[in-house]
Amino acid sequence: MIAVAGLSIRTGSRFLLEDISLDLEEGHIYALLGDNGSGKTTFIRSLTSYFHSYSGSILYDGRELRTFSRKERKTLHSLLPQLLPSPDLTVRRLLSMADGAAEKLCSFGLERIMDSRVPALSGGERQMVFLALALMRSARLYAFDEPEASLDQRFRGKTEAEIRKLRDEGRTVIVSFHDISRALSVADDIIVLSGGSLAAFQSRDAFLSERTAEKLFGLSRAQYIGEDGREGIIFIE
């Protein structure tokens, strides 16, 4: 379990995160929602050792994050950042940083880009390359910062399937989303940040039954029945 208590991050006098407390359990997918600038990326960064000074605590199985050694941190958290780097490496070399990542990329049907250099990839291809790397690192927490932003429908489906697979293997997964409907289709629990503070932390069902999206984001709910008979919910302005 990852226990966050009283976590605050600030630059100068401005709080990026303020007094966040929540527990993340194994075998759960947590969706992270919030407007631009609400602190989603900062929260994901703080869980993945980006900040070495923070107030409050981040406990991985009872041990403070900043007390882990470099080697230990490497297997603590795996990250897919929102802004992807463009290192001058071949895809093969990049993916050699995690065992099985090359095979994972092939399983996405992208073996043709294996010998390309990362800067030459399209946005979606690069997203899938870094997803493969993040998926195949061994870690306790898997954090994906807006993994679907530059993906088409097919790769979104593959991404979500992989995220569910991690959960089914008993890992802790946190994923930030822009789109509430996508978040609800994947997540077990919903975390909403607003202005750096925790606005809501509840199960998917409670999020829906308590009409949290309507209250926090001022959205309206639309229910639909697909051609296959499945019911779904989308949120509209």
């Binding site: 993945t48 050792s49 882990f68 958290h77 780097p85 290192p87 940083m97 954090a143």
Partner: peptide, 17 residues
């Protein structure tokens, strides 16, 4: 050096400062 080329966020997640 390869890790630092991945940017600060990813390098941090690999445990580097």
């Amino acid at each position: 050096m390869d890790a630092i080329m991945l940017g600060d966020e990813l390098a941090s997640s690999f445990g580097y400062r």
